[in-house]
Computed example of a mutant assay.
Amino acid sequence: MRHPTRPISMGMIGLALSTLTISAAAAPAAATAHHSIRYASVDACTAKDGTTTPCHTWRLDLLDGRRVALKDAMLWPLNAKGKTVKELQAPLSVSGDGESVAYFRKSDHRLVVREFHGAAHAMGPVHVMPKKALPRGVGMDDAWLRLSQDGARLVLGYSVKDGSSRARIFDVAGASETGALRAFDTFRGFSGDGSAVLVEQNTEENTTGLGVYDTGGDELARVVPPQIVAANVPWALSSDDRTVAFVTGGGTKARLRFYDAMADQAGGSVRFSLPPDASIDMIDWTGEHEVTLHLVRSEKVDRVTILRVDTRTGKTRVRDSYKVRAGTFSYQSCGG
Rank of each mutant, 00 (worst) to 15 (best):
A230D: 03
L17M: 10
D150I: 04
Q227K: 03
S239T: 11
V101G: 03
G137M: 05
D49P: 09
T186Y: 04
G335V: 06
G174N: 15
M1E: 09
H289N: 15
R312C: 04
A180F: 05
C55A: 10
F258A: 09
V247T: 10
G336K: 07
G11V: 02
G96R: 10
G189M: 02
G336N: 12
Y39V: 00
D97S: 14
L78D: 14
L15S: 13
L15E: 12
D264P: 00
G98C: 04
S239H: 12
G14S: 12
G124L: 03
A133N: 07
A180S: 15
A47W: 02
R182F: 06
G268I: 04
L88N: 11
A26H: 02
F190T: 01
T32V: 07
D43L: 09
K106T: 14
L198F: 04
R153F: 06
F329G: 04
V42D: 05
P276I: 02
R59P: 00
K71P: 00
G157N: 08
L70H: 03
P28Q: 06
V324L: 11
A33H: 09
V304S: 04
T19G: 03
P77L: 14
M129A: 11
L220W: 08
A231F: 02
G250N: 14
S164Y: 05
H56M: 08
E177P: 09
P77K: 12
A133C: 04
L17G: 06
A167H: 06
D260Y: 07
A102M: 13
D49S: 11
K71N: 05
A73F: 02
V101P: 10
R66P: 01
G249H: 09
Q332N: 07
Q227P: 01
T215C: 13
S41L: 08
R105Y: 05
K106V: 12
A30G: 09
R188Q: 13
L154M: 11
T46W: 01
E299I: 05
L15P: 03
I306S: 04
T19A: 15
A120H: 09
A120C: 02
R136Y: 06
S195M: 09
R297F: 00
P135V: 09
